[in-house]
Design a protein around this nucleic acid. Sequence first.
DNA 1: AATATCGACAACCGCGGAAAT
DNA 2: AATTTCCGCGGTTGTCGATAT
Length: 303
Amino acid sequence: MGHHSCCNQQKVKRGLWSPEEDEKLIRYITTHGYGCWSEVPEKAGLQRCGKSCRLRWINYLRPDIRRGRFTPEEEKLIISLHNIVGNRWAHIASHLPGRTDNEIKNYWNSWIKKKIRKPTTPPSTSPQSIELVQPRFNSVDQLDAIINQNLSTKPAAENIFHTHCPIFTFDTGAGDSRPGSSARDELDATTLNSSLWNPSQHQDQALSPLLNFSCGMDSTYLPPLVDGMGNMVPMEAQPCCVGDDGDTSKECFEKQELNEWVDSQQYSNLLIWDQMQGSLGGEGLLTATTNMDSLVASFPSSL
DNA sequence: AATATCGACAACCGCGGAAAT
DNA sequence: AATTTCCGCGGTTGTCGATAT
């Protein structure tokens, strides 16, 4: 009974690692590599269970670990990813080189505490980073459900970026989506700028599709436009999710540009949600979701 | 000045599923 | 084919110096 625990040896040390233990583990892993954690303790001369060794190496000792405070870019990415995939820390960490799931999880939890501590903080005094996590339009639960369902029905999908469901944000034109700006330049440099998707078709810059998670992101976060065989898949043959970064989208919405754009698209499925409150304090689409809700509600349950 | 609380970080635990036997 | 072992993940607790009471 209870023998399934990994730490059932007689002499198992627990708690914080000493420098000597670190030394032993580093020496062993750097010379032998790792493949079987369960045999590491014995071979490295450590009174630990393999699980503890793995954790220590992955989260602290491995050479390519990245330390220090999160950069603003990393924070934004964490928030954006969490908005979509929730508490999938390992998945989020996979998009932040050198960061571990544990670190991100700790960071998020302490952040949430901060947020809960002062639920009614005046905007003038609240840090911007806290404003950024103010979500989002009221059907986000539906969004999560749809995305989760989509993930679970695609066996090869490791994460959302490896599904056949591209996710885009579009900026509404106040800033980086202007022609010649960095975001547009970045867009043009990606595979999105192909015969399948021509940004120049969208003369209204307010509706130009951008990379995931607002402006300035690395192109590696682009969802693939290939199927499982490596063949290009026409955009209109794929389900598509579109998000907005929120800065000036209310204005866009009021001008009906968004609805017109949506109507003009040929995606088999189109989902729109408000990704986060804009950095400029814009109210985003979450304040005008009449069409959002109907869009979501009209989704085929198979998606 | 002593103690309680906080916050950032480190580590542990059980679980589900993969891999091995 | 069934059972055991192992691995990775996410929730949770532990540690300890800093800060507040």
